[in-house]
């Protein structure tokens, strides 16, 4: 029923308690929110939990959202804050990182090589401080502008640029040290 509605109409309907309209909002944004959480935390179970919690909290606090602002920035901010809280919680619940999974594909050799290569990038990313990893996810997965990233992370735009720049330098160093540069150049 709500599939053809525009975003503002969906949000207005949600404010009236139309939870199916909210479900449509969830359907439109769940991939982006999940990818953000997964990029931040590198833990699929945590990312799933937080994606769920972010949409519940956003609905509960929907009256705080201003319709003239981008909804994506708002929901990403909520998810980002929940990820940060989860990390604090994790200090007392150390988790074992999930094993690297290998997806199936048409050419197993090509798929395998790609999985290995991406797994190595992921390992390098995991060595970056959380502070540097988060703007990389928002920039290169969520494809956000610097000013949007700044709003989500509650830091000045200049800080975002600096962190992304430093993150890239650190990543290159890590990958060169671990002998991964060839993979990246290919």
């Amino acid at each position: 029923m709500y599939r053809l509605f525009d975003e503002v109409s969906l949000l207005r309907a949600s404010l009236q308690g139309e939870t199916e309209a909210w479900g449509e909002i969830v359907a439109r944004y769940k991939d982006a929110v999940f990818g953000l959480c997964l990029g931040f935390l590198h833990n699929p179970a945590d990312a799933e939990d937080i994606t769920h919690d972010a949409f519940i909290r956003a609905y509960e606090n929907l009256r705080r959202y201003k319709l003239d602002k981008k909804f994506s920035t708002w929901i990403f901010t909520i998810a980002s804050n929940l990820c940060r809280n989860r990390l604090r919680h994790r200090r007392y619940h150390p988790v074992i990182p999930p094993p690297d999974e290998i997806a199936g594909g048409s050419d197993p050799a090509v798929e395998y090589a790609r999985d290995v290569r991406l797994g190595q990038v992921r390992k390098a990313l995991d060595q970056l401080p959380y502070l540097y990893r988060t703007p990389l996810v928002l920039r290169f997965y969520n494809e956000l502008a610097y000013n949007e990233i700044a709003e989500i992370l509650a830091v000045p735009e200049g800080t975002v640029k600096t962190r992304i720049h430093r993150a890239k330098i650190q990543l290159k160093r890590i990958m060169e040290k671990d002998g991964l540069t060839d993979h990246v150049q290919r």
Binding site: G35, G39, A103, R114, L118, V121, L136, F140, L171
Partner: peptide, 12 residues
């Protein structure tokens, strides 16, 4: 980076 994030999200 983009490929890594997207690949990981797609896996799960």
């Amino acid at each position: 980076l983009k490929e890594t994030f997207e690949h990981e999200a797609a896996l799960h």
